[in-house]
Deep mutational scan, measured.
Amino acid sequence: DRHTIHIGDITIHLEGFSEEELKLAEELIKRGIHLEEVKRILEELYR
């Protein structure tokens, strides 16, 4: 499954994450956390 996060003019595609995980990812990215770090956090929390 493919999910999309929109932040301003930026569109990020993250596959294989639930709606809850994507909301967390979006919040972290909006707070300035680097995408690679966001992915690592999600994997630690949900895998």
Rank of each mutant, 00 (worst) to 15 (best):
E21D: 06
G16A: 08
D1Y: 01
R40W: 09
G16C: 06
R40T: 02
G16R: 10
Y46R: 15
E43D: 09
H6N: 11
D1Q: 04
D1V: 04
R2P: 14
E21A: 15
T11W: 08
L42W: 01
V38I: 09
L22T: 06
E44N: 05
K30P: 00
L35E: 04
L22C: 06
Y46E: 03
E19F: 14
K23H: 11
K30A: 12
E26D: 08
R2C: 10
R2N: 13
G8Q: 05
E36R: 08
L45H: 02
H6Q: 14
G32L: 09
G8F: 08
E20M: 10
E21F: 15
E36D: 10
E19D: 13
R40A: 06
D1K: 04
L24Q: 05
K23A: 07
G16Q: 05
T11Y: 10
H3T: 10
I29A: 02
E37I: 13
I29H: 02
R2I: 12
G8K: 07
E27C: 05
R2D: 10
E37R: 09
R40F: 02
L22K: 09
V38T: 00
R31V: 05
L42I: 14
E44T: 04
R40S: 03
S18Y: 06
T4C: 12
E43A: 12
V38K: 00
H6P: 04
E37Y: 15
L42P: 00
T11G: 06
I5V: 05
E26F: 15
G32S: 04
L24R: 04
E44G: 01
E36L: 13
L22W: 13
I7Q: 05
I7G: 05
R47F: 09
I12N: 03
H13L: 09
L35V: 07
F17A: 06
E27S: 12
E20A: 09
K39V: 13
L14R: 01
R47D: 04
I5L: 02
G16K: 06
A25H: 01
G16P: 02
E21P: 11
I7N: 05
T4I: 08
I29G: 01
L14K: 01
E44V: 07
R40H: 04
R40C: 00
I33P: 01
G8E: 05
L22G: 05
L35K: 03
T11P: 04
S18H: 08
K39D: 01
E19Q: 14
Y46K: 11
L22I: 11
G8A: 08
I12M: 09
I29D: 00
D9Q: 08
I10L: 10
V38E: 00
K30C: 04
K30G: 08
R40L: 06
A25L: 09
H3F: 12
V38F: 09
L24I: 10
R31N: 06
L45R: 01
Y46M: 11
E36W: 15
K39W: 15
E43M: 15
S18P: 05
D1H: 10
I10T: 11
K23I: 06
H6D: 08
K23W: 11
R47C: 04
D9A: 13
H13R: 12
E43Q: 11
L45S: 01
G8I: 07
H34M: 09
H34D: 12
K30E: 03
R2H: 10
D1W: 00
Y46G: 03
R31I: 03
L24K: 05
E36Q: 08
E36M: 13
I7M: 10
I10H: 09
H13V: 10
D1T: 06
V38A: 02
T4L: 04
H6F: 04
E15Q: 10
Y46S: 04
I5Y: 01
K30M: 12
T4P: 11
E26S: 13
I33S: 03
I12W: 08
I33H: 05
A25E: 01
I7L: 10
R31T: 06
L24P: 00
E15H: 12
G32Y: 15
I7F: 09
E36C: 07
E19N: 10
T4M: 03
E21L: 14
D9E: 11
I7A: 09
E36H: 07
Y46P: 01
R2E: 11
E26T: 14
L24M: 13
S18W: 09
K23P: 02
E21G: 13
R47T: 08
L45D: 01
E44Q: 06
E37G: 03
E26H: 10
I12G: 03
G16T: 10
G16Y: 09
E37T: 11
L14Q: 01
I10K: 09
S18D: 07
L42A: 00
G32F: 15
D9H: 12
H13M: 11
D9V: 09
I29Y: 12
F17I: 07
D1E: 05
E20Y: 14
I41Y: 05
E21H: 13
L28I: 02
A25C: 02
I12K: 05
T4A: 06
E36N: 08
I41E: 01
L45W: 09
E20H: 05
F17M: 06
L14D: 01
I41N: 00
